[in-house]
Design a protein around this nucleic acid. Structure first.
Lengths: 216, 216
DNA sequence: TTCGCTATTGTACAAGTGTATAATAGCGTC
DNA sequence: GACGCTATTATACACTTGTACAATAGCGAA
Protein backbone atom coordinates (compact mmCIF):
# COMPACT_ATOMS: atom_id res chain seq x y z
CA UNK A 1 0.00 0.00 0.00
CA UNK A 2 2.92 2.36 0.73
CA UNK A 3 5.05 3.29 -2.22
CA UNK A 4 8.11 1.05 -1.85
CA UNK A 5 10.27 3.44 -3.89
CA UNK A 6 9.77 6.24 -1.38
CA UNK A 7 13.09 7.34 0.03
CA UNK A 8 13.81 9.23 3.21
CA UNK A 9 14.06 12.36 1.06
CA UNK A 10 10.47 12.51 -0.07
CA UNK A 11 9.12 11.71 3.37
CA UNK A 12 8.59 15.39 4.11
CA UNK A 13 6.83 15.79 0.80
CA UNK A 14 4.49 12.90 1.53
CA UNK A 15 3.64 14.35 4.89
CA UNK A 16 2.82 17.70 3.32
CA UNK A 17 0.67 16.07 0.68
CA UNK A 18 -1.27 14.14 3.26
CA UNK A 19 -2.52 17.40 4.70
CA UNK A 20 -3.88 18.67 1.41
CA UNK A 21 -7.00 17.41 -0.38
CA UNK A 22 -5.10 14.27 -1.26
CA UNK A 23 -3.43 14.37 -4.59
CA UNK A 24 -1.19 11.53 -3.50
CA UNK A 25 -2.29 8.45 -5.46
CA UNK A 26 -1.42 5.96 -2.73
CA UNK A 27 -3.40 8.00 -0.27
CA UNK A 28 -6.48 8.05 -2.48
CA UNK A 29 -6.30 4.34 -3.18
CA UNK A 30 -6.00 3.74 0.56
CA UNK A 31 -8.99 6.01 1.17
CA UNK A 32 -11.06 4.02 -1.28
CA UNK A 33 -10.00 0.75 0.31
CA UNK A 34 -10.86 2.02 3.77
CA UNK A 35 -14.23 3.26 2.53
CA UNK A 36 -14.89 -0.08 0.86
CA UNK A 37 -14.10 -1.94 4.08
CA UNK A 38 -16.42 0.33 6.03
CA UNK A 39 -19.31 -0.03 3.60
CA UNK A 40 -18.86 -3.80 3.49
CA UNK A 41 -19.05 -3.90 7.27
CA UNK A 42 -22.03 -1.58 7.46
CA UNK A 43 -24.19 -2.47 4.50
CA UNK A 44 -22.88 -5.91 3.60
CA UNK A 45 -21.91 -7.19 0.20
CA UNK A 46 -25.30 -6.15 -1.11
CA UNK A 47 -24.85 -2.52 -0.17
CA UNK A 48 -21.27 -2.20 -1.35
CA UNK A 49 -22.01 -0.08 -4.43
CA UNK A 50 -19.73 2.28 -6.29
CA UNK A 51 -21.61 5.33 -5.10
CA UNK A 52 -21.87 4.22 -1.48
CA UNK A 53 -18.11 3.62 -1.35
CA UNK A 54 -17.15 6.83 -3.16
CA UNK A 55 -19.52 8.88 -1.01
CA UNK A 56 -17.87 7.44 2.08
CA UNK A 57 -14.44 8.26 0.64
CA UNK A 58 -15.60 11.79 -0.13
CA UNK A 59 -14.89 11.32 -3.81
CA UNK A 60 -16.76 11.40 -7.08
CA UNK A 61 -17.95 8.03 -8.42
CA UNK A 62 -15.82 8.30 -11.52
CA UNK A 63 -12.61 8.22 -9.51
CA UNK A 64 -12.93 4.57 -8.58
CA UNK A 65 -12.10 3.50 -12.10
CA UNK A 66 -9.06 5.75 -12.10
CA UNK A 67 -7.45 3.68 -9.35
CA UNK A 68 -9.03 0.28 -9.86
CA UNK A 69 -10.17 -1.62 -12.92
CA UNK A 70 -13.66 -1.85 -11.44
CA UNK A 71 -15.69 -2.38 -8.30
CA UNK A 72 -14.69 -6.03 -8.15
CA UNK A 73 -11.03 -5.13 -8.20
CA UNK A 74 -11.51 -2.65 -5.37
CA UNK A 75 -13.26 -5.26 -3.26
CA UNK A 76 -10.47 -7.75 -3.95
CA UNK A 77 -7.85 -5.14 -3.08
CA UNK A 78 -9.73 -4.45 0.13
CA UNK A 79 -9.64 -8.13 1.00
CA UNK A 80 -5.89 -8.23 0.40
CA UNK A 81 -5.40 -5.16 2.56
CA UNK A 82 -7.52 -6.42 5.44
CA UNK A 83 -5.98 -9.88 5.29
CA UNK A 84 -2.49 -8.41 5.37
CA UNK A 85 -3.43 -6.36 8.40
CA UNK A 86 -4.76 -9.39 10.23
CA UNK A 87 -1.76 -11.52 9.29
CA UNK A 88 0.62 -8.83 10.50
CA UNK A 89 -1.24 -8.36 13.79
CA UNK A 90 -1.13 -12.07 14.51
CA UNK A 91 2.56 -12.30 13.66
CA UNK A 92 3.32 -9.28 15.85
CA UNK A 93 1.46 -10.79 18.79
CA UNK A 94 3.35 -14.03 18.35
CA UNK A 95 6.73 -12.31 18.24
CA UNK A 96 5.87 -10.26 21.32
CA UNK A 97 5.23 -13.49 23.23
CA UNK A 98 8.91 -14.39 23.31
CA UNK A 99 10.46 -17.73 22.52
CA UNK A 100 8.44 -20.33 24.39
CA UNK A 101 6.63 -22.37 21.71
CA UNK A 102 3.39 -22.78 23.65
CA UNK A 103 3.31 -19.10 24.58
CA UNK A 104 3.83 -18.18 20.93
CA UNK A 105 1.03 -20.46 19.82
CA UNK A 106 -1.38 -19.11 22.41
CA UNK A 107 -0.48 -15.53 21.57
CA UNK A 108 -0.98 -16.19 17.86
CA UNK A 109 -4.46 -17.57 18.39
CA UNK A 110 -5.74 -15.28 21.10
CA UNK A 111 -4.61 -12.16 19.24
CA UNK A 112 -7.77 -12.76 17.24
CA UNK A 113 -9.76 -11.57 20.23
CA UNK A 114 -7.81 -8.45 21.09
CA UNK A 115 -7.51 -5.13 19.30
CA UNK A 116 -6.89 -4.36 16.52
CA UNK A 117 -8.48 -7.56 15.25
CA UNK A 118 -11.36 -7.83 17.68
CA UNK A 119 -12.85 -4.54 16.48
CA UNK A 120 -16.48 -5.10 15.42
CA UNK A 121 -16.09 -3.30 12.11
CA UNK A 122 -13.07 -5.32 11.05
CA UNK A 123 -14.84 -8.57 11.87
CA UNK A 124 -17.92 -7.44 9.99
CA UNK A 125 -15.80 -6.65 6.95
CA UNK A 126 -14.24 -10.08 7.20
CA UNK A 127 -17.68 -11.67 7.42
CA UNK A 128 -18.73 -9.83 4.27
CA UNK A 129 -15.82 -11.42 2.41
CA UNK A 130 -16.99 -14.85 3.52
CA UNK A 131 -20.29 -14.18 1.81
CA UNK A 132 -18.51 -13.36 -1.44
CA UNK A 133 -16.38 -16.51 -1.63
CA UNK A 134 -19.06 -18.56 -3.35
CA UNK A 135 -20.05 -16.00 -5.94
CA UNK A 136 -16.84 -14.09 -6.67
CA UNK A 137 -13.99 -16.20 -8.10
CA UNK A 138 -11.37 -13.58 -7.28
CA UNK A 139 -12.39 -13.52 -3.63
CA UNK A 140 -12.55 -17.31 -3.64
CA UNK A 141 -8.95 -17.72 -4.71
CA UNK A 142 -7.81 -15.08 -2.24
CA UNK A 143 -9.73 -16.86 0.50
CA UNK A 144 -8.12 -20.20 -0.32
CA UNK A 145 -4.69 -18.61 -0.28
CA UNK A 146 -5.20 -16.71 2.97
CA UNK A 147 -6.65 -19.67 4.83
CA UNK A 148 -4.02 -22.07 3.59
CA UNK A 149 -1.41 -19.67 4.92
CA UNK A 150 -3.14 -19.31 8.26
CA UNK A 151 -3.57 -23.04 8.73
CA UNK A 152 0.00 -23.64 7.67
CA UNK A 153 1.36 -21.18 10.22
CA UNK A 154 -0.88 -22.68 12.87
CA UNK A 155 0.24 -26.19 12.03
CA UNK A 156 3.90 -25.27 12.43
CA UNK A 157 3.22 -23.56 15.75
CA UNK A 158 1.30 -26.58 16.96
CA UNK A 159 4.11 -28.96 16.12
CA UNK A 160 6.65 -26.65 17.74
CA UNK A 161 4.46 -26.71 20.84
CA UNK A 162 4.53 -30.49 20.96
CA UNK A 163 1.54 -31.62 18.90
CA UNK A 164 2.44 -34.68 16.85
CA UNK A 165 2.78 -34.19 13.08
CA UNK A 166 -0.04 -36.69 12.65
CA UNK A 167 -2.46 -34.60 14.69
CA UNK A 168 -1.36 -31.14 13.63
CA UNK A 169 -3.38 -30.81 10.41
CA UNK A 170 -6.61 -31.76 12.14
CA UNK A 171 -5.80 -29.50 15.05
CA UNK A 172 -5.17 -26.60 12.69
CA UNK A 173 -8.54 -27.12 11.03
CA UNK A 174 -10.27 -27.42 14.38
CA UNK A 175 -8.73 -24.27 15.82
CA UNK A 176 -9.36 -22.27 12.66
CA UNK A 177 -13.00 -23.32 12.73
CA UNK A 178 -13.47 -22.26 16.34
CA UNK A 179 -11.82 -18.90 15.74
CA UNK A 180 -13.99 -18.31 12.67
CA UNK A 181 -17.14 -19.29 14.52
CA UNK A 182 -16.33 -16.93 17.36
CA UNK A 183 -15.49 -14.15 14.90
CA UNK A 184 -18.74 -14.74 13.11
CA UNK A 185 -20.86 -14.20 16.19
CA UNK A 186 -18.72 -11.31 17.44
CA UNK A 187 -19.14 -9.58 14.09
CA UNK A 188 -22.87 -9.27 14.67
CA UNK A 189 -24.17 -6.51 16.85
CA UNK A 190 -26.22 -8.69 19.15
CA UNK A 191 -23.60 -11.18 20.21
CA UNK A 192 -24.31 -13.46 23.14
CA UNK A 193 -20.75 -13.11 24.43
CA UNK A 194 -17.73 -10.81 24.45
CA UNK A 195 -14.25 -10.97 22.98
CA UNK A 196 -12.95 -11.87 26.43
CA UNK A 197 -15.25 -14.88 26.55
CA UNK A 198 -14.01 -15.88 23.13
CA UNK A 199 -10.46 -15.57 24.35
CA UNK A 200 -11.08 -17.95 27.25
CA UNK A 201 -12.89 -20.47 25.06
CA UNK A 202 -10.11 -20.46 22.47
CA UNK A 203 -7.47 -21.01 25.15
CA UNK A 204 -9.35 -24.03 26.39
CA UNK A 205 -9.59 -25.52 22.91
CA UNK A 206 -5.90 -24.92 22.36
CA UNK A 207 -5.00 -26.54 25.67
CA UNK A 208 -6.95 -29.64 24.75
CA UNK A 209 -4.70 -30.18 21.74
CA UNK A 210 -1.41 -29.61 23.55
CA UNK A 211 0.37 -32.61 25.10
CA UNK A 212 0.92 -31.24 28.60
CA UNK A 213 -1.95 -29.40 30.25
CA UNK A 214 0.28 -26.61 31.50
CA UNK A 215 -1.04 -24.01 29.11
CA UNK A 216 -1.15 -20.54 30.60
CA UNK B 1 -45.37 -23.79 5.45
CA UNK B 2 -47.97 -26.59 5.04
CA UNK B 3 -51.57 -25.54 5.45
CA UNK B 4 -52.40 -26.63 8.99
CA UNK B 5 -56.12 -26.83 8.22
CA UNK B 6 -55.54 -29.56 5.63
CA UNK B 7 -57.45 -32.66 6.61
CA UNK B 8 -57.03 -36.22 5.41
CA UNK B 9 -59.93 -35.59 3.04
CA UNK B 10 -58.21 -33.01 0.86
CA UNK B 11 -55.00 -34.98 0.69
CA UNK B 12 -56.01 -36.53 -2.65
CA UNK B 13 -56.88 -33.10 -3.95
CA UNK B 14 -53.52 -31.70 -2.95
CA UNK B 15 -51.72 -34.55 -4.66
CA UNK B 16 -53.66 -33.96 -7.85
CA UNK B 17 -52.95 -30.27 -7.73
CA UNK B 18 -49.27 -30.88 -7.27
CA UNK B 19 -49.12 -32.56 -10.65
CA UNK B 20 -50.66 -29.63 -12.48
CA UNK B 21 -48.97 -26.30 -13.21
CA UNK B 22 -49.36 -25.42 -9.57
CA UNK B 23 -52.42 -23.41 -8.77
CA UNK B 24 -52.07 -24.44 -5.16
CA UNK B 25 -50.99 -21.34 -3.23
CA UNK B 26 -48.95 -23.23 -0.64
CA UNK B 27 -47.12 -25.02 -3.39
CA UNK B 28 -46.24 -21.81 -5.19
CA UNK B 29 -45.06 -20.10 -2.04
CA UNK B 30 -42.93 -23.14 -1.29
CA UNK B 31 -41.53 -23.05 -4.82
CA UNK B 32 -40.54 -19.43 -4.38
CA UNK B 33 -38.92 -20.16 -1.03
CA UNK B 34 -36.98 -23.08 -2.48
CA UNK B 35 -35.87 -20.95 -5.42
CA UNK B 36 -34.83 -18.18 -3.05
CA UNK B 37 -32.75 -20.59 -0.98
CA UNK B 38 -31.08 -21.92 -4.11
CA UNK B 39 -30.24 -18.48 -5.47
CA UNK B 40 -28.91 -17.35 -2.10
CA UNK B 41 -26.64 -20.38 -2.01
CA UNK B 42 -25.49 -19.97 -5.60
CA UNK B 43 -25.22 -16.23 -6.13
CA UNK B 44 -25.08 -14.96 -2.57
CA UNK B 45 -27.07 -12.14 -1.05
CA UNK B 46 -25.90 -9.85 -3.84
CA UNK B 47 -27.33 -12.06 -6.58
CA UNK B 48 -30.63 -12.77 -4.89
CA UNK B 49 -32.77 -10.56 -7.12
CA UNK B 50 -36.46 -10.80 -7.86
CA UNK B 51 -35.87 -11.93 -11.42
CA UNK B 52 -33.19 -14.50 -10.55
CA UNK B 53 -35.46 -16.08 -7.97
CA UNK B 54 -38.59 -16.04 -10.12
CA UNK B 55 -36.68 -17.44 -13.10
CA UNK B 56 -35.48 -20.28 -10.91
CA UNK B 57 -39.04 -20.90 -9.72
CA UNK B 58 -40.27 -20.85 -13.33
CA UNK B 59 -42.58 -17.97 -12.61
CA UNK B 60 -43.12 -14.43 -13.81
CA UNK B 61 -41.48 -11.68 -11.72
CA UNK B 62 -44.81 -10.15 -10.83
CA UNK B 63 -45.90 -13.22 -8.92
CA UNK B 64 -43.52 -12.68 -6.04
CA UNK B 65 -45.56 -9.76 -4.77
CA UNK B 66 -48.69 -11.86 -4.95
CA UNK B 67 -47.37 -14.21 -2.27
CA UNK B 68 -45.01 -11.98 -0.32
CA UNK B 69 -45.04 -8.30 0.52
CA UNK B 70 -41.67 -7.90 -1.17
CA UNK B 71 -38.28 -9.44 -1.79
CA UNK B 72 -37.23 -8.83 1.79
CA UNK B 73 -40.25 -10.71 3.09
CA UNK B 74 -39.48 -13.66 0.82
CA UNK B 75 -35.91 -13.79 2.07
CA UNK B 76 -37.13 -13.66 5.67
CA UNK B 77 -39.66 -16.42 4.98
CA UNK B 78 -36.86 -18.46 3.45
CA UNK B 79 -34.80 -18.03 6.58
CA UNK B 80 -37.70 -19.19 8.72
CA UNK B 81 -38.23 -22.20 6.49
CA UNK B 82 -34.58 -23.23 6.44
CA UNK B 83 -34.19 -22.67 10.17
CA UNK B 84 -37.25 -24.78 10.89
CA UNK B 85 -35.84 -27.56 8.73
CA UNK B 86 -32.53 -27.50 10.56
CA UNK B 87 -34.19 -27.37 13.96
CA UNK B 88 -36.39 -30.32 13.08
CA UNK B 89 -33.49 -32.38 11.73
CA UNK B 90 -31.49 -31.81 14.90
CA UNK B 91 -34.45 -32.71 17.12
CA UNK B 92 -35.12 -35.85 15.08
CA UNK B 93 -31.50 -36.97 15.38
CA UNK B 94 -31.62 -36.40 19.11
CA UNK B 95 -34.82 -38.39 19.54
CA UNK B 96 -33.43 -41.23 17.44
CA UNK B 97 -30.47 -41.48 19.82
CA UNK B 98 -32.61 -42.92 22.61
CA UNK B 99 -32.61 -41.87 26.22
CA UNK B 100 -28.99 -41.68 27.31
CA UNK B 101 -28.28 -37.97 27.94
CA UNK B 102 -24.76 -38.00 26.54
CA UNK B 103 -25.85 -39.92 23.46
CA UNK B 104 -28.66 -37.42 22.89
CA UNK B 105 -26.28 -34.50 23.20
CA UNK B 106 -23.77 -36.00 20.80
CA UNK B 107 -26.49 -36.89 18.32
CA UNK B 108 -27.88 -33.35 18.49
CA UNK B 109 -24.54 -31.77 17.72
CA UNK B 110 -23.16 -34.20 15.17
CA UNK B 111 -26.38 -34.17 13.16
CA UNK B 112 -25.02 -30.88 11.87
CA UNK B 113 -22.51 -32.84 9.83
CA UNK B 114 -24.79 -35.45 8.33
CA UNK B 115 -27.50 -35.16 5.69
CA UNK B 116 -29.81 -33.39 5.34
CA UNK B 117 -27.97 -30.58 7.09
CA UNK B 118 -24.48 -31.22 5.77
CA UNK B 119 -25.58 -30.62 2.17
CA UNK B 120 -23.37 -27.91 0.61
CA UNK B 121 -26.29 -25.93 -0.75
CA UNK B 122 -28.08 -25.73 2.58
CA UNK B 123 -24.92 -24.59 4.33
CA UNK B 124 -24.33 -22.00 1.62
CA UNK B 125 -27.86 -20.69 2.06
CA UNK B 126 -27.25 -20.47 5.79
CA UNK B 127 -24.01 -18.59 5.20
CA UNK B 128 -25.86 -16.09 3.02
CA UNK B 129 -28.20 -15.35 5.91
CA UNK B 130 -25.22 -14.63 8.14
CA UNK B 131 -24.17 -11.94 5.71
CA UNK B 132 -27.59 -10.30 5.94
CA UNK B 133 -27.76 -10.09 9.73
CA UNK B 134 -25.91 -6.78 9.93
CA UNK B 135 -27.80 -5.02 7.17
CA UNK B 136 -31.33 -6.48 7.36
CA UNK B 137 -33.15 -5.89 10.67
CA UNK B 138 -35.72 -8.60 9.96
CA UNK B 139 -33.01 -11.20 9.42
CA UNK B 140 -31.18 -9.89 12.48
CA UNK B 141 -34.11 -10.48 14.80
CA UNK B 142 -34.73 -13.92 13.30
CA UNK B 143 -31.07 -14.74 13.77
CA UNK B 144 -31.15 -13.70 17.42
CA UNK B 145 -34.23 -15.80 18.02
CA UNK B 146 -32.94 -18.90 16.23
CA UNK B 147 -29.55 -18.83 17.91
CA UNK B 148 -31.00 -18.20 21.35
CA UNK B 149 -33.18 -21.26 20.84
CA UNK B 150 -30.27 -23.38 19.66
CA UNK B 151 -28.03 -22.37 22.54
CA UNK B 152 -30.84 -22.89 24.99
CA UNK B 153 -31.49 -26.43 23.76
CA UNK B 154 -27.79 -27.14 23.83
CA UNK B 155 -27.47 -25.82 27.35
CA UNK B 156 -30.21 -28.10 28.62
CA UNK B 157 -28.67 -31.10 26.90
CA UNK B 158 -25.29 -30.26 28.38
CA UNK B 159 -26.66 -30.07 31.90
CA UNK B 160 -28.57 -33.31 31.43
CA UNK B 161 -25.29 -34.88 30.33
CA UNK B 162 -23.58 -33.79 33.51
CA UNK B 163 -22.12 -30.37 32.77
CA UNK B 164 -22.51 -28.07 35.75
CA UNK B 165 -25.06 -25.25 35.46
CA UNK B 166 -22.19 -22.80 35.97
CA UNK B 167 -20.31 -24.10 32.94
CA UNK B 168 -23.23 -24.83 30.65
CA UNK B 169 -23.73 -21.34 29.17
CA UNK B 170 -20.09 -21.01 28.21
CA UNK B 171 -20.07 -24.54 26.83
CA UNK B 172 -23.12 -23.80 24.72
CA UNK B 173 -21.46 -20.73 23.25
CA UNK B 174 -18.25 -22.64 22.61
CA UNK B 175 -19.95 -25.54 20.87
CA UNK B 176 -22.16 -23.28 18.78
CA UNK B 177 -19.11 -21.36 17.64
CA UNK B 178 -17.25 -24.49 16.58
CA UNK B 179 -20.25 -25.81 14.68
CA UNK B 180 -20.69 -22.48 12.92
CA UNK B 181 -17.03 -22.28 12.02
CA UNK B 182 -17.08 -25.79 10.58
CA UNK B 183 -20.28 -25.00 8.68
CA UNK B 184 -18.74 -21.86 7.32
CA UNK B 185 -15.80 -23.64 5.77
CA UNK B 186 -17.91 -26.58 4.58
CA UNK B 187 -20.24 -24.16 2.83
CA UNK B 188 -17.46 -23.08 0.51
CA UNK B 189 -16.58 -25.20 -2.44
CA UNK B 190 -12.88 -25.47 -1.72
CA UNK B 191 -13.02 -26.71 1.82
CA UNK B 192 -9.88 -28.11 3.39
CA UNK B 193 -11.81 -30.90 5.12
CA UNK B 194 -14.94 -33.02 4.89
CA UNK B 195 -18.12 -33.31 6.91
CA UNK B 196 -16.69 -36.49 8.46
CA UNK B 197 -13.66 -34.56 9.68
CA UNK B 198 -15.99 -31.96 11.12
CA UNK B 199 -17.94 -34.67 12.87
CA UNK B 200 -14.82 -36.03 14.57
CA UNK B 201 -13.64 -32.57 15.61
CA UNK B 202 -17.01 -31.67 17.07
CA UNK B 203 -17.13 -34.93 19.07
CA UNK B 204 -13.76 -34.12 20.56
CA UNK B 205 -14.85 -30.63 21.60
CA UNK B 206 -18.02 -32.05 23.13
CA UNK B 207 -16.09 -34.69 25.05
CA UNK B 208 -13.82 -32.04 26.54
CA UNK B 209 -16.83 -30.38 28.16
CA UNK B 210 -18.39 -33.55 29.56
CA UNK B 211 -17.43 -34.66 33.07
CA UNK B 212 -16.51 -38.27 32.33
CA UNK B 213 -14.39 -38.93 29.26
CA UNK B 214 -16.50 -41.89 28.18
CA UNK B 215 -18.09 -40.13 25.23
CA UNK B 216 -18.78 -42.44 22.29
C1' DT C 1 -72.50 -23.12 -19.90
C1' DT C 2 -71.88 -19.06 -17.32
C1' DC C 3 -70.09 -16.55 -13.52
C1' DG C 4 -66.92 -15.17 -10.01
C1' DC C 5 -62.60 -15.24 -8.27
C1' DT C 6 -57.83 -15.87 -7.76
C1' DA C 7 -53.55 -17.12 -9.72
C1' DT C 8 -50.56 -15.59 -13.17
C1' DT C 9 -48.64 -12.98 -16.77
C1' DG C 10 -46.45 -9.19 -19.26
C1' DT C 11 -45.07 -4.90 -19.17
C1' DA C 12 -44.19 -0.33 -17.55
C1' DC C 13 -41.93 2.66 -14.33
C1' DA C 14 -38.75 5.29 -11.47
C1' DA C 15 -34.71 4.61 -9.11
C1' DG C 16 -30.24 2.61 -8.77
C1' DT C 17 -26.42 -0.12 -10.97
C1' DG C 18 -21.37 -0.18 -13.01
C1' DT C 19 -18.92 1.99 -16.39
C1' DA C 20 -17.38 5.45 -20.04
C1' DT C 21 -15.97 9.97 -21.27
C1' DA C 22 -15.29 14.73 -21.97
C1' DA C 23 -14.25 18.74 -19.29
C1' DT C 24 -11.80 20.89 -15.41
C1' DA C 25 -8.43 21.86 -11.85
C1' DG C 26 -4.14 22.10 -9.84
C1' DC C 27 0.38 20.47 -9.10
C1' DG C 28 5.58 20.19 -10.71
C1' DT C 29 8.75 21.55 -14.37
C1' DC C 30 10.65 24.38 -17.63
C1' DG D 1 4.36 32.84 -15.91
C1' DA D 2 3.24 29.05 -19.30
C1' DC D 3 3.00 24.17 -20.15
C1' DG D 4 2.23 19.35 -19.57
C1' DC D 5 0.21 15.93 -17.05
C1' DT D 6 -2.46 13.57 -13.87
C1' DA D 7 -6.00 13.66 -10.49
C1' DT D 8 -10.72 14.70 -10.18
C1' DT D 9 -15.31 15.95 -11.34
C1' DA D 10 -19.72 15.86 -13.44
C1' DT D 11 -22.52 13.83 -16.35
C1' DA D 12 -24.29 10.45 -19.62
C1' DC D 13 -25.14 5.77 -20.94
C1' DA D 14 -27.11 1.21 -21.10
C1' DC D 15 -28.68 -1.93 -18.06
C1' DT D 16 -30.68 -3.94 -13.80
C1' DT D 17 -33.15 -3.16 -9.71
C1' DG D 18 -37.83 -3.70 -6.89
C1' DT D 19 -42.38 -2.68 -7.43
C1' DA D 20 -47.07 -1.39 -9.59
C1' DC D 21 -50.74 -2.47 -12.47
C1' DA D 22 -53.87 -3.68 -16.02
C1' DA D 23 -54.95 -7.75 -18.67
C1' DT D 24 -55.54 -12.70 -19.02
C1' DA D 25 -56.31 -17.51 -17.89
C1' DG D 26 -58.28 -21.20 -15.71
C1' DC D 27 -60.28 -23.34 -11.88
C1' DG D 28 -64.80 -24.30 -8.79
C1' DA D 29 -69.58 -23.25 -8.11
C1' DA D 30 -74.09 -22.32 -9.80
Amino acid sequence: MTNPSATADDTRLLVLRALLPARDPDRRAADLIAACAHVLATAGARGATVRAICDRAGVSPGLLRHYFSGLGALIAATYVHVAQGVTRALADAMEAAGTDPQARLIAYVTASFRPPIAAPELLATWAAFWSLVRSDPAIASLHTEVYAGYRDALQKLLMAAGVSPADAPQAAVAITALVDGLWLELSMETSAFTADDANIIARRWLASWLPAQIAT
